[in-house]
Amino acid sequence: MNAFADDRKPLVILAAVVLVLAIALFLRGIGSLDLILFSILQYFATIGPVALGLGLTMIAREFDISVGSTMSLAGCVAVIVGQRDPNLGALAGIATGVAVGFLQGVLVTGLGLSSISVSLGALITLAGLSYVVTGNQTISLNHADITQAINAPIGSVFSVRSLFAIGCFAAAGVVVALTRVGAELTATGSDRVAAATAGVRVNRVVVVVFMLSGGLSAASGVFLSYGLSVASPSGLTDVLVPAISAAIVGGVALTGGRGSPVGIACGALTLCTLNAGLNALGVSPTMQQIILAGVLFTVAVVAAPRLNRIWMRRTQNGGGAL
């Protein structure tokens, strides 16, 4: 269904992008490799968990368009509560995300609504809620020590933020690969009726997937806000474009039932490497945005079901000699 949906392809794409970046850096003279790796992983920490959550909903054949709003609301809640107690703030932010995900999952499964409509309503409502809780102000955390600790390099390329993101992927990867959950997720996304007949509690899978999507986006928002020491109701980063691109490049099919956390991680790393490469080459932010948008556009076209069918037909007719 998706030209990217192949177990090895995400890895190949990632390797290709890394290679191109390496050549480009070699030709221009390598700066500090540690610094480049660090910046790749910092960006990965921001978009990785969101892409993972969104990707999991897509594998289950749902689509959570509200991840950006959830991320921003969780950041605001965390910073407001966290001014007194940062740990409590982080907890409150993530709990907000999980609760939002739970409500969306229940609405989607309970009423049989399309997840795009529910999460669209949630997107608008959560954005409004962010403005209400912050009073339309940018709020600072006032805990310089925590901001420092979150971003401080660990082993010269990692940080608390990026290790958290890597941990999320590792946990998700292990659970999906080694337990029933992975099979149930894929079954729910491939054919819901068949999955239900086979004994999968599909509604529960969908609700859990939405809770994960909300919780992971929220965690990313909390870490980002703590790391920047501010939260803003209008959001601190445009996360939907890279997150969707990462999931699809990572082999998640829009038609559901295909994809894995490892693939999504590769997709996210591909985008982060691209981003870091463009930065290192001195490409202007405007041009970077155009390139990233171009990537998503290409991905959308390549993943289009009709194109794939035309392509398959052509290779079947003329591809015999190859």
């Binding site: 969707i244 948008a293 998503l296 289009a304």
Partner: peptide
Amino acid sequence: LRANPIIVSLAAYALLI
């Protein structure tokens, strides 16, 4: 091509900006 309208328009949004 039956591409996903949400994704296409999101990419177009970023491109236009």
